[in-house]
């Protein structure tokens, strides 16, 4: 048992994680649901009474509660992995990535999952932290619903079902991602 936990505590390579994500999607299909995490944001709006401001939130959200249970699981999974399956080594990032981030003022790239200079409560009250956490989150929620799905709904579920709209959405994800990474982040990170 101990060696199993030790083995599971190693970082999982892509060829383990990718197939397991496909397995997650297939499990959901077999229980009659479809894999799409950003739907939970719309459901939350509906539960909170969003139907009063837009008919987009006026639907029977009870049919979507399964997805809220799924993301509750995703939170628990994060807790389990960080509590019992942790490993102390930093993330083995590419050397080019590490050097570029150091130039942009990130001290220990890969030390944790997130750069703590930005993702902390203290940082929230700085211009840089506010932009990255609040504006960043807003763009995710707005864009995912505008595009009708996020990474799970389009890149995984949609592409698996050979949907051209999902391919267009994924191209969009990369256009936005590249603009942010190459043009905007160098400015935002040095705010």
């Amino acid at each position: 048992m101990e060696s199993l936990v030790e083995w599971m505590s190693q970082p999982w390579p892509w060829y383990v994680a990718g197939p397991l994500i496909a397995f997650t999607m297939v499990l959901l299909l077999f229980v009659g649901k479809s894999f799409g995490v950003s739907d939970t944001l719309r459901t939350t709006c509906a539960i909170g009474g969003g139907g009063r401001v837009s008919d987009f939130f006026d639907f029977d959200w009870r049919k979507q509660t399964w997805n809220l249970v799924f993301v509750l699981g995703a939170i628990i999974g994060g807790f389990i992995a960080s509590t019992w399956l942790q490993q102390p080594d930093p993330i083995p990032l590419a050397q080019d990535t590490i050097e570029r981030l150091q130039e942009l003022g990130i001290d220990n790239p890969g030390e944790n999952y997130l750069p703590e200079e930005i993702f902390s409560w203290e940082s929230l009250f700085t211009l840089r932290g506010f932009v990255m956490l609040v504006i960043g989150g807003f763009l995710i929620g707005f864009g995912a619903r505008y595009a009708g799905g996020c990474t799970s709904g389009h890149a995984i579920s949609g592409l698996s079902n050979l949907q051209v709209p999902s391919l267009i959405a994924v191209v969009g994800f990369f256009i936005g991602g590249l603009i942010m990474t190459y043009l905007l982040l160098p400015v935002i990170l040095t705010l």
Partner: peptide, 13 residues
């Protein structure tokens, strides 16, 4: 999909 996806990509990155 293109506009929505691009906005999402900005937030994702």
């Amino acid at each position: 999909y293109l506009f929505g996806g691009t906005i999402f990509g900005l937030g994702w990155a």
